[in-house]
Design a protein around this nucleic acid. Sequence first.
DNA 1: TTGATTTTGAAAATCATTTTCAATTATATA
DNA 2: TATATAATTGAAAATGATTTTCAAAATCAA
Lengths: 147, 147
Amino acid sequence: MEQDILKKSYQSKLKKPLKSSVKRALIVNYFMNRNRHFSVEELYDEIKKMSLKISYSTVYRTLNLLSSIGLARECVFKDGMTRFEPAHRSRHHDHLVCERCGKIIEFEEPKIEKLQKEVARRHKFTVDWHRMELYGLCAECKKKEKL
Amino acid sequence: MEQDILKKSYQSKLKKPLKSSVKRALIVNYFMNRNRHFSVEELYDEIKKMSLKISYSTVYRTLNLLSSIGLARECVFKDGMTRFEPAHRSRHHDHLVCERCGKIIEFEEPKIEKLQKEVARRHKFTVDWHRMELYGLCAECKKKEKL
DNA sequence: TTGATTTTGAAAATCATTTTCAATTATATA
DNA sequence: TATATAATTGAAAATGATTTTCAAAATCAA
Ligand SMILES: [Mn+2]
Ligand SMILES: [Mn+2]
Ligand SMILES: [Zn+2]
Ligand SMILES: [Zn+2]
């Protein structure tokens, strides 16, 4: 099951034994089967909906764990809330964020990535990671706008 | 004095009269004479250093005011704290952020901006604003690294 | 089983920022 | 100049997402 991936990855990096647990299994399961961003609240509500007990502490702890071992990617958009996405489902990408409906569109643009490296080189800067977000109106919201 | 620019701009947009005030003058004065980002704490400390009384409420209020009428630009980097910069001192640009020493380098890269527009068009998305930050090590920190 | 260690959740803490509200101040007008 | 009106201020409380604390519950190795 999914917890094994976690255990292996976790123990190899943090050398602390992991005990298996029902709560963590739930969270990891939700996580592994998502292929897009989700907020902490979204995950929390989903588990609550199945009438299962869970606390925010545990949710945050587990998500941070996944993040610390590189299984989860974190993004913080304009609204300031942390969202997570499984790193194994997609490689690096950037985001278009609709300020009306909140939709998040992912995109890759290798030409931009290349130019970013060029900018860094020009400043003798070593880039570890970056974020790029374009905010505005998505096609649907623009359509509604016109009525 | 500087408050006049503010008053004119503010009243034309928010049609509420602005009374002049010593505290606001201090903040606006600091703001207008900076040509790079500063944190709220930085400004607050600076005014305190001149042994002048000021409260964070007033600092936040005034900075938000400058922001709301477009005189200030806000950026929130990885650390989650809001920084401000005077909009009249420079046009749009993006940032390199050193994760070691906190240095912030500004850059413009028109080729990237053009490609961003292209991405947006491809998704029928209308971009209002964007942010792009490259995080890593600056040249100086890299040098120290090697010792 | 036992004993050691990890996990959990409720409640408290954090921390930047905002809000509240009563007191102070500026400004327009009489 | 005095007064009325409206804006400004700051202390303290509120906010809200996230983290921490800590005692109780669960897991696991021997
Ligand atoms: Mn994404
Ligand atoms: Mn800048
Ligand atoms: Zn939309
Ligand atoms: Zn540096």
